[in-house]
């Protein structure tokens, strides 16, 4: 996605991202009582990130994000599962939820907090992670690929992976590949 890049577009997008994410947070927190919830919030955040990547370029996004969305998604799923496991500690069945009512919290007054929210956060993380990863990987794979492959390789390290598109001469790829094999040899 080497879309048009202009200063105005960039700043508009930055603003939009900020607003969308605030709104997403609102949706996430309000989900239990009004339309919203983990999915919707997650999708909103993901779309904001996609917009951002349109503005900044995918490579830049990666530098910015610093973490692998896969781990975000896996972490989200783990959060949801752990939320489900919590009641096991007190001898209740899997996935039973508990709500707490806190009175007199400073600034907010009465607050309902419960494990459903935690569960929803898990859903939110999964949706953000999955959507971002898919779009980014896909978008990047249509551009220069060596970098992408090298990067994924750092994460998962498999010496026999090769770029999906031979955008470099084959001989070069082989040299690179053999080099990698050496580094990964035990």
């Amino acid at each position: 996605m080497n879309g048009p890049r202009s200063y105005i577009f960039n700043s508009m997008v930055r603003l939009a991202v900020f607003l969308v994410n605030v709104f997403a947070l609102y949706l996430l927190l309000r989900g239990h009582n009004a339309p919203g919830g983990g999915f919707i919030a997650g999708l909103a955040t993901a779309i904001s990130l996609i917009l951002l990547s349109l503005a900044l370029g995918v490579q830049e996004m990666h530098r910015l994000l610093r973490f692998d969305p896969v781990l975000l998604a896996a972490g989200g799923l783990l959060t949801a599962i752990v939320t489900g496991l919590l009641p096991l500690l007190v001898g209740k069945p899997f996935l039973e939820h508990f709500n707490f009512h806190l009175h007199d919290v400073p600034l907010l007054g009465e607050v309902h907090v419960g494990t459903p929210l935690l569960f929803d956060v898990g859903v939110y993380l999964v949706v953000v992670g999955v959507t971002c990863k898919m779009i980014f990987v896909f978008a990047k794979s249509t551009q220069g690929l060596r970098a992408l492959v090298a990067e994924e390789e750092r994460r998962y390290s498999s010496p026999v992976e090769q770029p999906i598109e031979a955008d470099v001469p084959r001989a070069e790829a082989e040299v690179g590949n053999q080099g990698k094999e050496k580094t990964h040899a035990d």
Binding site: A73, G76, G122, V127
Partner: peptide, 25 residues
């Protein structure tokens, strides 16, 4: 829970598709 698992797997599958597991040089 099942559905976010599906999402996660779809993503892994997508990565698998694009990161072609290739033969040796």
């Amino acid at each position: 829970l099942g559905e976010i698992t599906v999402l996660l797997i779809a993503m892994l599958g997508g990565i698998g598709l694009l990161m072609r597991y290739k033969r040796t040089a």
